[in-house]
Design a protein around this nucleic acid. Structure first.
Lengths: 167, 167
DNA sequence: CAGTTTAAGTCAGCCTTGTTGACATTCCAA
DNA sequence: TTGGAATGTCAACAAGGCTGACTTAAACTG
């Protein structure tokens, strides 16, 4: 029972309420940092975090339908429509009627949309790159493993589907 | 230059734009899961996530001043005041005038406030405990390391101060 | 073909939670 | 003792969530 003893004595330390509480606080503070840089950029323009999220996932999955995006973002049609409409009007997003199913609208970034997406993502990635570099590859693998385990099953499926669609 | 070759060939894979992008998506989806359970509980009552955050940090640092809480939460006085006022009216939080400096208000949870805080934290911790258990101690250590590296320096200080104040 | 379902968009109105600006109280130092 | 700085409160507004009801167009189905 060496395994068991070790587990209780050391390894399970990370499951105490205090450790879990610290984990929650880490999530809170880190998420603030995670969104801070793009938010700062968007402050100047008349866009918000909701626009960033839409841009990100349209970039990730060009040609996605409105319904699909709805599921990924987890918001209502009306909420999404508001941000989508302004970005279409401003020429950042293009909405094309579907060929096979004409009810659907497929979403693409225009050149301007792509430029803004890149600007926002670059700002965000710069911070993540620094964090990943500081923490090292082992830590990053653990980071990903814990985050994935923390997702709702439905979201985990969405996440994995997006990953598979790329490299 | 074995070190360098390994770094380029394997270890630095986690710093590619694609990996960073996946890390960002993981943060997005995981944070949704992270807040889902308390949010569900709060839906029934007429409170929101802001109330949960205030309860959490008043529980963590009883007797904290409004200003202190402001810095931790990173919102404006007015935002915090609104949620604080309703919770004081509802008998969840107690606000005592400072003895040495009467301008300050020191915040404490009442018994009812403590009960709600516990209910919310328990729901959140249940998910985190499962995630931590699934991922294992090494992963959890990495998770914490990356999150800490991702915080703004100011927030990292707040976070570490809170940790030191406890165990 | 007629009727139902589905995808998308719209309008109206609500809630939470962020914001800025003005104001009262208290403390402290010149 | 008085004027500035710090703390907290109130009022009004904006962003971005939400629900519900409805329209339009296209697709499916018996």
């Amino acid at each position: 029972m060496t395994e068991g003893r070790t587990a209780q004595g050391e390894t399970l330390l990370y499951l105490t309420d205090e450790q879990l509480r610290q984990g929650a606080e880490a999530m809170f503070f880190a998420y603030r940092g995670f969104t801070a840089d793009p938010d700062r950029i968007l402050d100047g323009l008349c866009y918000g975090r909701a626009h960033h999220r839409a841009l990100h996932f349209i970039h990730t999955a060009p040609g996605t339908t409105v319904n699909n995006l709805l599921n990924i973002l987890g918001v209502t049609k009306q909420s999404l429509n508001r941000v989508l409409r302004t970005m279409i009007e401003d020429g950042l997003v293009e909405s094309r009627v579907g060929r096979v199913d004409k009810r659907e609208r497929h979403l693409y970034l225009t050149e301007a949309g792509d430029a803004l997406e890149r600007q926002l993502s670059d700002a965000q990635r710069m911070r993540m790159r620094a964090a990943f570099r500081d923490a090292g590859p082992e830590a990053v693998a653990g980071f990903r493993r814990v985050l994935e385990a923390m997702m709702d099953p439905e979201m985990r499926r969405q996440y994995q589907r997006l990953r598979e669609g790329r490299g």
